[in-house]
Write a protein that binds this DNA or RNA. Structure first.
Lengths: 171, 171
DNA sequence: ACGAGCATGTAAGAGGTTACATGATTAT
DNA sequence: ATAATCATGTAACCTCTTACATGCTCGT
């Protein structure tokens, strides 16, 4: 995937919330946001350097313990601008999803193939994990007050329409 | 994604169905199966050569028109074996999905952000397209006779459980 | 003191995209 | 004829992963 360096914007987006060191970002990828984004530290550190060279972030060090200099990065004004430009860019209409599950499903012609059932069960586990994450995020973002719920009525209606269709497919 | 060369198995899987030229495979990626897999011709042609060198496929040319030699590939016995080994490999439990939609949703803290609604609408269109494709595939694979439906009862039950959970999330 | 985790980096190489290139076929 | 599409290839480049490498800190 030689794509358009999305990591760059992920880093800007995270630094837009608060100052972070490279290692902190690595930890975020390992835990909190790992369900929908991940990068290795070997990619994070060079990218942070590049962003600083380009002026989108600044850094300063802080002594931890006796000797260790931990480097914290903060977003700059131009970084903030760049980030919001990216957020405004529409999602690509043709997401070239490389979905291994659907792929295998397509390549297995035999309905009685011994791995079919196992594959479905695995896929279901993956979806369940994703679902749990999404529900949590939704609770955080859209809270539970009736007032806020009304504001996002349109969102709920549209999303529900999609889900209903999916249920028709299954049922 | 420096992954484990999935394209290799996609090619084997397609050639397992019938003889194909590189260009035919390119066309398949552009149309029929493009929803869940895609590779450029600049990646397909070298990979086919490599597979032939490794003995997993063979090729022969066929004259089209006056001069053009179109090269068709066919799977070998060892290729068939390799493919079915791969099909038996379990899907990776931790799919590092790089989901730009969820990502942007996470990075946008402001519930009143002007792009939020547009983003949801776009995402819904993407899901609708995917849904349509999946329904079609399901109809092809699992046909509609009552006998076959019973055989896939377990599949339906499990899938339904997943969908119901998703609907709870929305509703 | 010692081990687990914190913290940061580089190098090699695989996978994938974009662009460069060329020529034949087919339908209008 | 000529344009769109068929058909095949290579080169440069970028992203990302794997592996190599080093040193510090903190809790027990």
């Amino acid at each position: 995937m030689a794509k358009k360096n999305v990591l760059k914007y992920v880093l800007l987006g995270l630094l837009n919330q608060r100052e972070l060191a490279g290692y902190d970002i690595k930890k975020l990828f390992d835990c909190e946001i790992g369900d929908f984004w991940h990068s290795k530290h070997s990619q994070i550190y060079p990218e942070l350097k590049r962003l600083e060279e380009e002026g989108y972030i600044t850094s300063h060090t802080k002594i931890v313990g006796q000797k260790l200099e931990k480097r914290f990065y903060a977003i700059t004004e131009s970084g903030h601008t760049l980030l919001h430009h990216w957020l405004a860019v529409p999602l690509e209409p043709l997401q070239p999803t490389r979905d291994e599950f659907t792929l295998k499903l397509y390549l297995i012609n035999d309905k009685h193939h011994p791995h079919l059932r196992q594959m479905f069960e695995q896929e279901i586990l993956l979806h369940e994990a994703k679902f749990n994450y999404l529900r949590e995020r939704r609770n955080l973002l859209f809270a539970s007050s009736e007032k806020q719920k009304r504001e996002f009525g349109h969102y709920l209606i549209l999303s529900h329409a999609v889900m209903r269709k999916k249920c028709i497919w299954i049922g």
